[in-house]
Design a protein around this nucleic acid. Sequence first.
DNA 1: CAGTTTGATAACTCATAGTTATGAATCCCT
DNA 2: AGGGATTCATAACTATGAGTTATCAAACTG
Lengths: 297, 297
Amino acid sequence: MSYQTEFRHFKYFLALAEDLHFRKASERLFISQPGLSRQIKQMEEALGVNLFERHNRKVKLTKAGEYMQRELINNFQRLADIISHAKLLNDGVDGNLKLGYVGSAMQRVIPDLLLKFKEEHKNVLFDINEMDNNKQITALLKQEIDVGFVRMERVPRGLNILPLFEDTFSLVLPADHKVDESTFIGLSQFKDEPFILFDSSYSQSYYEKVMQIFDDAGFAPIISHNTVNASSIFRLIENNFGVSIVPTSLKLGFDMKIKFIELDKIPQRTTLKLVWNSVNTNPLLENFLNIAEEVNF
Amino acid sequence: MSYQTEFRHFKYFLALAEDLHFRKASERLFISQPGLSRQIKQMEEALGVNLFERHNRKVKLTKAGEYMQRELINNFQRLADIISHAKLLNDGVDGNLKLGYVGSAMQRVIPDLLLKFKEEHKNVLFDINEMDNNKQITALLKQEIDVGFVRMERVPRGLNILPLFEDTFSLVLPADHKVDESTFIGLSQFKDEPFILFDSSYSQSYYEKVMQIFDDAGFAPIISHNTVNASSIFRLIENNFGVSIVPTSLKLGFDMKIKFIELDKIPQRTTLKLVWNSVNTNPLLENFLNIAEEVNF
DNA sequence: CAGTTTGATAACTCATAGTTATGAATCCCT
DNA sequence: AGGGATTCATAACTATGAGTTATCAAACTG
């Protein structure tokens, strides 16, 4: 082997692949044009791959070159992440972990998980933000958060998913509503009452699942309000604006004048799921996932 | 910025991180010990990360160093994959794609998918091998195959999953069996007949799902044979060794003296899923997944 | 305490990245 | 057509810094 590809080569390659113009690219790299020419040539020889077609006075990427460009950008981004995480470790921060979650995850799952995690990792900084399902997905793709807690069936490619906790649905009524556990027969008792539900923007698949419940019960609900968080739903119920159907675990942690009737006879369940980006290199992610897999809810 | 990290630095770092001994590592790299010392020092300065603790005459990795080592090995492996794929593209091979599949995928899904794929990618070499669910998972993790077609609920971390086609189950009987579509009432009619089933090693979750069917029907089956492929199950049924329950799509493509009764009344379904490794850089994988997502079975 | 082994420092040399100068080919105007 | 401009490639030169040898200080070993 004669020459050896170095970082420099890849850097130059990416610049030229963008400009497709030796002189311009060389100026942007603060080197001379012949210098760039030679380095690119060297790189092509060393890898044994023709990256550019030089016909006439036009430069274009070959198929292999296009592929390289796409993948290298990707790869270098990861490398940059690795280095910046290493820097954090170096500076004594054991690291930080950014979480997004849908409100209903805060009642049961998240507290348990964080407690368990803190046991093993004292100096970890957490960044915890409530955000709806779709916001989390976008944030995960942009790597603005490391993990999300969502209620949805499928996620875009590139994201991984781990089911955490399966929950039944519950009917939520004002505390003084005439129907209670003993007099509850079926949902159709409520076909004339207004419902307050999570907005379909919260999660399309969650919304469809709830609609399926009504469908199975044989009526279309009167929807009086759409909202995006549990406490406002509960507040509205408390004040007799209507009733609702929500994940059962929301029962915990609210002190309001409302009552829950668990719909454990219907087949629908909602599963809280952990989602993360497969290219995330945060060193704590691996640990977090291990703990999440161990814990049984 | 003074110095710039180059490939060389990472190569040296990995060598030293293994040996934890400057002289030994330097010999292995065919450079002198002071040369190595200086390059490592430069790298630490350039990155702003202390990679090694040098106390007494012992060298050990810092936390950041350990993390770096782990991640860099990973990252370089990917880079090597990228280059080798680029080489393939360069040599005119549009690429090759290695598939694993469970037998029951060959009847419907795979032929359609491959046909569609071939339309857009003429010069692609396929490597198609029947293998059971678990073999596929191992092969995917080792990147011995690019995509797998499996019937299982969950896969290890690092693998991604895409549901393709939901299938009902069917009861399979010898062609001359006294029960047929019109006289079939329920599974319990078969509680005294021997069943031939896929072995549980085929896929634990698939096995459990089938057992659930028997559970719902209120009896435990007499299992006369376990086997791992469809044609041997059918051959046994043909010769009156028993009956079976299999995915309905296996109906196609076999010419045997057997008959199918679709169990579309029971809730159980089996979903054929596509699985791939999230770090796979095969340039065709992306295309293949796009086509798989478009096609509706 | 002599002998050995460790990594670091200093001064040198030599390979090669990057330079300037130039050339060949193509385009683009009158 | 033909002069001028623009493209990338080639050749010869320069100088940066990777890798060298020589040496040191510190810590283990017996």
